[in-house]
Write a protein that binds this DNA or RNA. Structure first.
Length: 122
DNA sequence: CAGTTGACAGCAG
DNA sequence: ACTGCTGCCAACT
C-alpha cells in the first residue's frame, strides 16, 4: 500500500486468501501461520481491513469473506464489508451460515479449508 | 522512537 | 461450558 515499501505481510495475506477454494473457509490463525507466525492472527484481520484501500478490481479478486475466526464466527467489524454481506457471500457459495449467539456461524468441521501445504507463498 | 490500535486466539477464572 | 483477560505483532500516529 504505502508507496515504495513491499509490505510483504499484507501482500502475503491477500495472496494466501486468494488460495482459499470456493465453498471453503479459513481462519485468521491459519492465514497467519502461513504468512508469518500463528501468533499474528490479529494482523491478518488488519490486513484484510486494509484491503479496502486497494482498487475495486483488485478487491474483487480477494475472497475476504472466506476468512472467519477460529470459533467459526464471522467477526468483521468493517463498515464497508459487513458481517451480513459476508454471510450472504458465503451462502451463495453453498456454505451453510446459521445464527448463533446473535452472530453468523459456520461449521468448521464441515467447511474448513485443508491446504495441501502450509509453506509460505515465497 | 514510544505509545496506540485491532475483521484473533488461547487460557484462566 | 461460558465469559473475560492477556499476549501477539505489524502498521499507524
Amino acid at each position: 500500500m504505502r508507496g515504495g515499501k513491499p509490505n510483504n505481510f499484507f501482500t502475503r495475506v491477500w495472496d494466501t486468501t486468494r488460495q482459499i477454494p470456493r465453498g471453503r473457509v479459513a481462519t485468521y490463525g491459519m492465514i497467519a501461520s502461513i504468512v508469518s507466525t500463528s501468533r499474528a492472527a490479529r494482523q491478518v484481520g488488519w490486513a484484510l481491513h486494509a484491503m479496502d484501500k486497494l482498487p475495486p478490481q483488485d478487491i474483487r479478486t480477494i475472497p475476504w469473506h472466506r476468512v472467519i475466526n477460529s470459533k467459526g464466527y464471522i467477526s468483521t467489524t468493517c463498515q464497508e464489508h459487513t458481517a451480513n454481506e459476508q454471510a450472504d457471500l458465503l451462502q451463495k457459495e453453498g456454505i451453510e451460515v446459521r445464527r448463533r449467539n446473535n452472530l453468523w456461524w459456520v461449521d468448521l468441521q464441515k467447511y474448513l479449508w485443508h491446504p495441501k501445504r502450509l509453506d509460505a507463498q515465497r
